[in-house]
Computed example of a mutant assay.
Amino acid sequence: MSYPPYGPYQGYPAYGYGPPPEHPQATTIMVLGIVGLVFCQLLGPVAWIMGSKAKREIAQSGGMLGGHSSVTVGYICGIVATCFLMLAVLVYGVVIAIAVVGGSSSGY
């Protein structure tokens, strides 16, 4: 009778089996990206920069780090939130410029 091989601890898989551990900041990047997209666009650039760094680290790990999908979601949400932030700054700038020009040429 043969028994199945066990890993270093009874009932746990041996090292190297199962999914790789997730990048330590994967969940943080995803949360920052989603919150930046929905509530506070100022967090968008933070998620974009952190996501870019984490994607690079995952690629350099050679498959030893997981969490690529969570990092990608946060990264893309960060890019979109940053675009919304830049659009809002542009719109506010145009509105302020129109108000300044319109207020100074009224002749009063």
Score class of each variant (00 low, 15 high):
residue 81 A to Y: 09
residue 59 A to M: 14
residue 72 T to C: 11
residue 79 I to A: 13
residue 66 G to E: 01
residue 94 V to L: 11
residue 66 G to P: 06
residue 92 Y to S: 11
residue 79 I to E: 11
residue 49 I to P: 06
residue 54 A to M: 08
residue 83 C to K: 13
residue 88 A to V: 15
residue 76 I to S: 04
residue 50 M to A: 10
residue 71 V to E: 02
residue 90 L to W: 03
residue 62 G to S: 07
residue 53 K to G: 10
residue 80 V to H: 08
residue 57 E to N: 05
residue 56 R to V: 00
residue 82 T to I: 02
residue 78 G to N: 02
residue 50 M to P: 04
residue 64 M to W: 02
residue 63 G to R: 04
residue 61 S to F: 05
residue 96 I to T: 15
residue 47 A to D: 09
residue 78 G to E: 01
residue 46 V to P: 03
residue 59 A to H: 14
residue 46 V to C: 09
residue 95 V to E: 14
residue 49 I to R: 03
residue 62 G to T: 10
residue 46 V to Q: 10
residue 59 A to Q: 14
residue 78 G to I: 02
residue 47 A to G: 06
residue 93 G to P: 00
residue 82 T to Y: 09
residue 48 W to Q: 10
residue 63 G to D: 00
residue 76 I to M: 09
residue 70 S to L: 05
residue 80 V to Y: 02
residue 79 I to F: 09
residue 61 S to I: 12
residue 92 Y to T: 13
residue 95 V to W: 03
residue 49 I to C: 11
residue 76 I to K: 10
residue 94 V to G: 10
residue 80 V to I: 12
residue 83 C to M: 15
residue 91 V to E: 02
residue 77 C to H: 08
residue 86 M to I: 15
residue 86 M to Q: 02
residue 81 A to C: 13
residue 61 S to A: 11
residue 64 M to I: 11
residue 71 V to T: 04
residue 87 L to I: 07
residue 81 A to W: 06
residue 69 S to C: 13
residue 73 V to C: 01
residue 69 S to P: 10
residue 76 I to L: 12
residue 82 T to P: 06
